[in-house]
Design a protein around this nucleic acid. Structure first.
Lengths: 230, 230
DNA sequence: TCAAAAGTGTTTACTCTACACCCATGA
DNA sequence: TCATGGGTGTAGAGTAAACACTTTTGA
């Protein structure tokens, strides 16, 4: 077997921008590194692509390692490969964004890092080009969520319409007309109304809904157009 | 300086899916390899990411080397990284699609390969996972072009409305209602009508148009919604 | 009984679609 | 003068935006 002799090999990493929503604000799961290099600094969760796995598997592994979760919604969105982005050694990183239900997140036990949920607009300085990655991920999330119902991945199993509206308002930094937004949602057939109500947010209470998984899977790839004017 | 000692380095490549449009059919620029491995077989144009360049630069370089063109519209769209996709040695490839004006293409002189324009639906077997890359690129092109006016990159400087319509019909494999399509185009303010006509396609002749570059640049990133029903 | 948020209904403007029809011209 | 594709006009359906109004319930 021939090999590509003269070419240089490169470190290949994955980094994950992990979004969560606590009902009020969009949050990011970041880590404080417990090991060199850059010990003590904030960073995205990442890892190296191993010899026997493809990059998607690497990202799933990394996500699982941090959150304890499997089958997380995850999308590869951009490669970051400036020659000097990592001063230790040239490393090209494939960036993924992931959407998780913040309530399902379980603290993990590794001492390699401390994990923390941080509000997206109070993000600290991260190492390398990670802040740039976050900006790009947010952009990509907006793009995708305007057309596909992916934001439901951020909500718990049972949720209310005011919660979804708040989520969209956070993602797009706009105020939505609640009546019209509600009607739009109803017309998608994605929601199943539950008999009981959430009384947290108001006196009257808002009905709980669950996702209609069948419709959800079907509409996932087709355009849905949740947000019209961007 | 520390290095990531225990991690394995990987070959990193870029591959380009190069689209062109000859007025009738969508075409792809592929090469017949003149060197090992896989000598004599059809392949996408690609190359390795060098130590001092980022992947986008590598793709531009590769595109320029094959076509003689600079400032080609190009988008990174997916990483292909199955461990055994290249039997020679593990290689992860960043795939780009590019849109070029087929008339501007100049044959290059390298003897490393022979280049050929092939109709997209008569594509031969390509090496490795390149056919899969083409499928994904086509999908991505559809997605992007439904919302952004990128397909103009495939047209010559002066073009007619029937030409654009034919292009959209090729990309989406549909028949468009010409009157409505024309009106939609006019409403974008993207086109500047030329005084003369193209008499090739019909007796009456179709007016030439040129892109309004200012409007084009402005509308590039905002949603435009060229194709409604997908 | 009032305030506050959930939820419904209605009006109006706009956009999309289908398709009838006119235009220009070479054969 | 007629066939052919280029191009315009128009009516009806469908969608989006604005906002008035009703419902529920704890304080």
């Amino acid at each position: 077997m021939i090999a590509y002799d003269k070419q240089s090999r490169i470190m290949l990493a994955v980094d994950c921008i992990i979004f969560g929503f606590d009902g009020n604000a969009l949050k990011l799961l970041i880590i404080e590194r417990g090991m060199l290099p850059e010990k003590g600094k904030w960073s995205l969760m990442g890892g190296f692509v191993q010899g026997d796995e493809n990059p998607n598997e690497a990202a799933s592994r990394v996500l699982n390692h941090l959150t304890g979760l499997k089958d997380i919604y995850m999308e590869q969105f951009q490669v970051f490969g400036e020659p000097r982005r990592d001063p230790t050694e040239r490393t090209v990183s494939i960036a993924y964004y992931a959407l998780i239900d913040i309530n399902k997140y379980q603290h993990q036990l590794s001492t390699d890092y401390k994990a923390a949920w941080v509000e997206l607009n109070q993000l600290p300085m991260l190492i390398f080009d990670h802040n740039e990655m976050v900006t790009a991920a947010r952009q990509q999330l907006r793009y995708k969520a305007a057309l596909h119902p992916i934001l439901f991945e951020l909500l718990p199993e049972r949720f209310t319409i005011p919660q979804i509206a708040a989520l969209f308002e956070q993602v797009y930094q706009v105020e939505l007309d609640r009546p019209n937004f509600m009607r739009k949602l109803r017309l998608t057939d994605l929601l199943i109304k539950q008999p009981d109500k959430d009384k947290e947010g108001s006196k009257r209470g808002a009905h709980y809904y669950m996702l209609n998984q069948d419709v959800y899977r079907k509409k996932f790839s087709s355009f849905v157009h949740f947000v019209t004017q961007l």
